[in-house]
């Protein structure tokens, strides 16, 4: 179109450096392809691609910095205020006598129709929770535990009181509901004489069962500090004192862990005699 401002001819060293960079880039790309072809190797592949892109970046950067004008240009800015006459004409065009936006009554009716459609469109969202599933409040309160449900270990074996060693947590799950999110519990053996507050769900000669889910945000309280009888949540460091009916003693949790009442059946296995003493896990609005 027209002559550009004269640009000084490239110093030969610059050209050479750019070409070298692009050659390095091509070598990196070939290196990647070869590594991939030879069976793949994450580190080499990453390094080769990095070299390829570093070469590309260096070449382009030198080119953009050394061979083309940098800085020194000015472009006018039209300002942010539209020309008043243009604005007036646009407004006039929009609000002409036959303009749709002047028919207020029709617009109101249209608005009503669109609102109704919008609200109606929300209804299918209710299908996100299928009707045959339990409602939230009930589902949050009920767990698979109940009278007569056997306690299984993580391996799926039914548990006897003698299987719970002193000084370790044993994760337990309800028979027939091992995958449920709100069911995990743990059994632990404590010395009954150290109880400062009797467990609300009772105990079997020092054996107590509590929900594994932290009452703060629902993480499993898997860390057991056996000397102090405390369990600790690894997510936010809430800790609960098992000697005081799993009362929260530190960290952000505010409620005690719900206990699970258990008994030994005729075969010598542990069975729940009811559900948890309270809904397990994090709190929610309708929690009793």
């Amino acid at each position: 179109m027209s002559r550009r401002p004269r640009v000084a001819p490239a110093p030969s060293g610059v050209n050479r450096r750019i070409i070298l960079s692009f050659l390095v880039s091509a070598a990196g790309a070939i290196g990647f392809a070869v590594t991939y072809g030879l069976g793949g190797h994450t580190q080499w592949e990453g390094a080769c691609l990095a070299v390829a892109f570093v070469g590309l970046a260096t070449g382009l950067a030198i080119w953009g910095r050394r061979l083309v004008p940098v800085g020194g240009y000015v472009e006018e800015h039209e300002g942010f205020v539209p020309p008043p006459d243009e604005q007036a004409l646009t407004a006039a065009a929009l609000s002409a006598p036959d303009s749709p936006i002047r028919r207020r009554g029709l617009l109101a009716a249209l608005g009503l129709a669109l609102t109704a459609l919008g609200v109606a469109a929300l209804f299918p969202l209710r299908s996100l929770l299928p009707w045959d599933r339990a409602r939230p409040l009930r589902a949050r309160r009920d767990t698979p535990w109940g009278p007569g449900v056997r306690l299984l270990t993580a391996g799926g074996q039914p548990l006897r009181p003698g299987d719970v060693p002193a000084g370790a947590l044993v994760g337990v799950f309800p028979e027939g509901g091992t995958d449920a999110g709100d069911a995990p519990a743990f059994a632990v053996r404590l010395q009954p004489e150290r109880f400062t507050r009797p467990p609300s769900a009772g105990h079997l000669d020092g054996l107590v069962v509590y929900s594994l889910l932290c009452t703060h945000a629902g993480c499993p309280v898997r860390l057991y500090l056996k000397g102090t009888g405390r369990v600790l949540c690894p997510c936010h460091q809430s800790s609960f004192n098992l000697f005081a009916d799993a009362a929260p003693v530190a960290g952000p949790a505010a409620r005690r862990l719900p206990g699970l009442p258990v008994a030994v059946d005729a075969d010598g296995y542990l069975r729940a005699t009811g559900d948890f003493t309270a809904p397990p896990g994090a709190g929610f609005w309708s929690r009793p």
């Binding site: 799950f173 449920a180 069911a183 499993p220 309280v221 898997r222 690894p234 997510c235």
Partner: peptide, 8 residues
């Protein structure tokens, strides 16, 4: 559901 990892 019954497992946790530390540190998290």
């Amino acid at each position: 559901p019954g497992q946790a990892t530390s540190p998290a």
